[in-house]
Structure formats: structure tokens, C-alpha cells
Simulated scan of single mutants.
Amino acid sequence: MNLQAEIDNLFSSQMKKWEQLRNGIKQLDDTEEKVITWGDGFNVKIQFNPARMVSTSAKIDKESIENRPCFLCEANRPALQKGILFMEKYIILCNPFPILRNHLTIPLHSHVPQLIRNKVGDMLSLAEQLPDYVLFYNGPKCGASAPDHFHLQAGLKSPQLLQGDNVLRSCLMIESGNKSEVEELFEDVYQYLHHRQPKEDEPMMNIIAYIEQNRYKLNLFPRKAHRPRQYYENGSKQLLISPGALDMAGMIICVREEDFKKIGTHDIEDIYSQVSLPVI
């Protein structure tokens, strides 16, 4: 049985036994969406998904992280949450707070920090076996709600997530039929971004990876800020949006109805300009 079929069976089994997952998928079924389009063909899908409030509002400062149990460690995961072993070091889990169809969380067994260097090959190996999926990575200061435990995420492909560079935000696109070449090119980009942000443990970034026509594709979104200023505003000026990989690709998640209703073209352009790092 191939891995995609195993994942389908996992979702079927978990849906029967795990009420939290059933509720999460039902909430995804009921989400409202709207699309904003720019003249160059780029479009952004806005999703109203209140179930993502915990992730969007997550505190990632050192004290907060140290004072809460890691929800990706096996000892702290729900008893009903089961998974599939991958590469003898990852566990593929159904995400009970989905943004995408078949939303997966894929943590390492080991409790190690969220740092992607030397793990891009693992990401591409998983993409090989999941041709209908996108894999994505949120850096420790770029949308990861568990920056203390390395993990990837995945979900079924959608057009918004396969968009590359455009005038609204930077996207460095790496493509090759050779996995090793993609890893080498990523290392070159990593070194360049590290030079731009030498004080960071890891250059700020989000990554989308997938397979298309037997070619490996890696879209890397360099970042200069974790959250836009609107996140910290009060009253009507506030937009509680904390961009991760999906937001940067073109699927912005709103956890409050008032944000979903009022967000418009100018807001999106402004948010991207604040958090995206221009590259030359």
C-alpha cells in the first residue's frame, strides 16, 4: 500500500474513533471563504476559520514555551491520536484543527528545535510519496506554534498554494528533477539569507514543497517580521492575522469574523509588505 492510501485509511479510522478530529473537519466544511484577485493573475483566498485561534494567538516567547507541555511530544498528544511512522523518525498525524483537506502534522520523534537546515531532504522525500499534497514548513518566528519541536505539515494541493513570486511578496523558487540539486540550491539560499539575518538562529522563512510532473518544487518565502503591526492594534484597527506558509503562498486565515468581513486588497498588500523580506 502506498503512503497516500495509508493516510486515507488513517483519516477514515481516526474519523470513526476521534471526535475532536470529526468536529475539526466539520468546522472546515462550514468555513466561509472569499477570493481577492490582482491584475497579474495572483489571487488570495481568505478563509474564516475560528478553530485556528489557538495557533494564531500562540505565545512563542521563551518563558511561555518553557511553561507549557509540548503538544507534539508523544506523551502529551491526545490518547486517541494515532499516526504512521515515516523514515523511522517522523510520525504522520491527522491535524484536528485543519486548514486544508487531509491536513497533516508531521513531527520528529525527538524534541528538537524547529530548524529546517539539513532536513529539506526529508521534506522532499515525503513530497515524493505524496504527489497530491503540498508539504509546508513554518520557521520558529514565522508561524510555528511549536518552535521547540521540529515538525512539517501537509495537506492536499490547491491552486493558491502553488503560486510563486509576484509583486506583493518575495518568493524564491527552486525547481529540479534532481533532489540533491534542490538541496544544494536551498543551502545556497540559506547561506544568503543567513548573511542578511546573521543574528537569527535560522533565517526567517516559510517553505512550500511539492512534486509536479516528476520535478521537485520548493517555494521559499523570506521573512523580515513574524506578525504585522495590525496584529497588535486595538479596536477596529486590529487584524488578528499571524502569517505562516499558507498565508504567504496565498491562503490567508482569519480567526475572527470581523477580520474576515473587513480585510481587503490594501490590508493584504500592507501585511505582505511588512512581513516579506525583499530579495535581490
Rank of each mutant, 00 (worst) to 15 (best):
I211E: 04
L10P: 10
Q160E: 04
R77Y: 08
A75M: 12
I7F: 01
F136H: 08
Y90D: 08
E233A: 15
F150P: 05
T105H: 03
R215T: 01
M1L: 15
P69V: 11
G83T: 02
N138D: 06
I25V: 14
Q4D: 15
V35M: 04
C73N: 09
Y190I: 08
Q81C: 11
R227M: 10
Q238D: 07
M1Q: 11
A245P: 06
K141W: 00
K59Q: 14
I208N: 01
A5F: 11
D8W: 15
A249M: 02
I263D: 01
R196Y: 11
G143Q: 02
M204N: 10
K89M: 03
R223G: 09
D188Y: 09
V120D: 08
K262A: 03
L218Y: 00
K199R: 11
K26M: 14
K199Y: 15
N118S: 13
L126Q: 06
S236W: 00
T31E: 13
P198C: 09
S158H: 09
R22D: 14
N219S: 11
I263A: 02
L240Y: 00
A51V: 07
Y190W: 08
G139A: 02
L193N: 12
N219R: 14
E187R: 06
E233N: 13
S55A: 15
P107S: 01
D132L: 09
K45H: 05
A75W: 01
N138T: 00
R196K: 13
F221R: 02
K224M: 13
F11A: 02
M87F: 08
K45Q: 09
M248Y: 10
V112A: 14
E202N: 10
S57C: 14
W18Q: 11
D122E: 07
M205I: 05
E6K: 13
R68M: 02
C70Q: 01
T31I: 04
F136K: 06
F136M: 10
N102A: 03
S276H: 05
Q81R: 07
K16N: 12
D61K: 10
M87D: 13
A146C: 12
P203F: 07
Q153V: 10
K237S: 13
G155T: 07
A146P: 11
L124A: 03
L152T: 01
G83Y: 02
N95E: 10
L126N: 04
M173D: 12
L115N: 07
D267G: 12
Y272G: 13
D40K: 00
Q163Y: 12
K16C: 02
L130E: 04
L126D: 03
M123N: 01
A79K: 13
